[in-house]
């Protein structure tokens, strides 16, 4: 049984992008922190860090690494502005459902399942995330080619963001991307 998504290639790709993007004055929030290793890698490098996850096992894991953690649905319940927002969302399309044991691995499924087109959670996230973004805020979003790079960039544009690819890695079945979003002028 897997309670928390174990750090994987996507985790480390977003971690490297976050370390390279973060500056000492940033207040940072990580949405969907999972094990908490990305937030932990920023401790001491930024002004403040906060982590949220919907999974109780994940927020406990993050708290045990010394990160202030809140159990929440995305950012709902958080009323503040952040300079850097990190999100490794559930991004896999699951037309036929994920091939996981639904009872044992239900939290793993929550971590991966992006709905029929892979973009359901991302779409919901992009609609509200400006409320927690400071004027100079940046957002790093991890996605896969399976999520649809063009489609996600279009969603971001429609939500009022400029997008830029800041990291990419190729694997057998997919490419992983880190997109950097800022408010469109």
């Amino acid at each position: 049984m897997v309670d928390v998504y174990p750090p994987s290639e996507d985790t480390y790709l977003l971690m490297r992008a976050a370390i390279s993007e973060a500056s000492a004055g940033d207040s940072v929030i990580e949405i969907g922190c999972g094990s908490g290793v990305i937030s932990a890698s920023l401790i001491g490098k930024v002004r403040s860090i906060l982590a949220t996850d919907i999974n109780p096992h994940a927020v406990r894991a993050a708290a045990s690494l010394g990160i202030p953690a809140v159990r929440a649905d995305l950012f709902h319940g958080i009323n503040s502005k952040f300079d850097l927002i990190l999100f490794n969302p559930p991004y896999l399309p699951t037309e036929d459902g994920l091939d996981l044991n639904p009872e044992d691995d239900r939290w793993l499924s929550t971590a991966l399942d992006g709905g029929a087109d892979g973009r359901e959670v991302i779409e919901r996230f992009l609609k509200g995330v400006k409320n927690i973004m400071s004027p100079r805020g940046r957002l790093l979003l991890l996605i896969s080619s399976l999520t649809g790079l063009d489609e996600v960039q279009e969603l971001a544009r429609r939500s009022g963001f400029n997008t830029e690819i800041v990291a990419m890695e190729r694997y057998f079945f997919e490419e992983l991307y880190v997109l950097k979003l800022r408010r469109a002028e």
Partner: peptide, 9 residues
């Protein structure tokens, strides 16, 4: 609980 606020609806 356990030092963590549960802000889920």
């Amino acid at each position: 609980e356990e030092g963590i606020p549960n802000m889920l609806p």
